[in-house]
Amino acid sequence: MKQLVVSAPPHLKTPRTTKRIMIDVVIALLPAAIMGVVLFGLYALLILALSVLSAVLTEYVYEIVAHKAWKSPSYFLDFWKGFDFTSVVTGLLLGMIIPANVPWYLPVLGAVFAIAVVKMLFGGTGKNVVNPAVAGRVFLFISFAAMTAYPVGKDFGLFAVYAPDNIVTGATPLTEYLAGNTVQVTKGMISNWLFGFGMTGCIGETCKIALLLGYLYLVIRKVIKFWQPLLYIAVTGLFAVCLEGFDFTAFLPSVLTGGLLLGAIFMATDYVTSPKSNLGNIIYFVALGLITAGLRKATGIEVVSFVILLMNIVVPLIDKFVPRRPFGYVREKKAKEVTSK
C-alpha cells in the first residue's frame, strides 16, 4: 500500500473562491456598464454607483444586526475580510437593468429589497431561491411607473439608418416589434442594435457588443459554460420565429432587442439559482427560451426578468427529479474499458 496521507481538510486547495468568481463577473459587466454610461450620460453612472453602494451597505448593516456586532465590536471590520463581492455583483446588475432616467431612490430601494429580502432573509450567499437582481427589478417594476419610460441612448450617427417614426418617445425596438409594427431590418439598424446607438432600453442592455465581450471573458475564465446562454438565446429566437409564422426575419429583432442578452449571459447562469445537473440545465434553458418567446408574443412587453424569476422558482423541482451525476462518478463503460486493458 502506498503512503496514506492524513491531514485536516480541506485537502484540495484551489484559487477559485467565490470572491474571485464574483470579481470576474464584475469585470465582465464593466464593458456594458461603461457603454451604458457613454450612451445614457453621467446620471446612469450615478444610478449604478447608488445601486452598488446600497447593496453593499445593506448587506453590511444586515450582518451587523444579525451578528449583534455591538456585543463583539471586532465584527465591524471582520466583515470586510470575509466580504465576497456577491452584493457588488447584485448591485451592479440591478443598476444595469433599470432605465437611466429613474429617480435616485429607485436603485436604492431596489438594492435594499434585493439584498435584504431576497438574499439575506433566505440565508445569505448561496441560499437565495431567486436571483436577487432580477427580483429587485421586478419589485421596482411593480411599484413605480417610472420603470416603463425608457430614454433614448445617444446616437453618434455612425451608421445611416432608417428610423421608425416614433422611436423618440421611448418605445423600445422590442415593443415596436411586438406591437405589430414592422421594424425595418437594415444593415444600419442591426449595427445600431449591436452598438446601442440611438436605442432605447435599460442602462446595460443596449450595447450588445459589450455584453458579448463580457460573455467571452466569462467563458475564457470558465465562470460560465459557453453553451448555456447560447441555448437560451437560440431557443428564444427560434420559437419567436415559429410564433411569427416561420418568418425568419423575426429572429434577429427578437434576439437583439430587449434584455435577452443581458439576462441570458449574466442572470440565468447564476450558480445558486440554476439547476445542478447538465440535463437539468438543458431543460432549464430550453424552458426559459420557450416561455420568454411565448410570453413576449402574448403580452407585448419585456418579460425576460419575469421569466427568469419564474424558472428560478422551478429549479428546485428540476433538481429533485433530474438526477445529478455524483461527484467522481465515472461512466461504467469507460471503467470497463480501463479494467479490460
Binding site: L109, F113, F139, I142, S143, F144
Partner: peptide, 8 residues
C-alpha cells in the same frame, strides 16, 4: 411603493 399594494 406600489409593491405593497400588490399580491406579492
Amino acid at each position: 411603493i406600489g409593491f405593497f399594494s400588490s399580491a406579492a
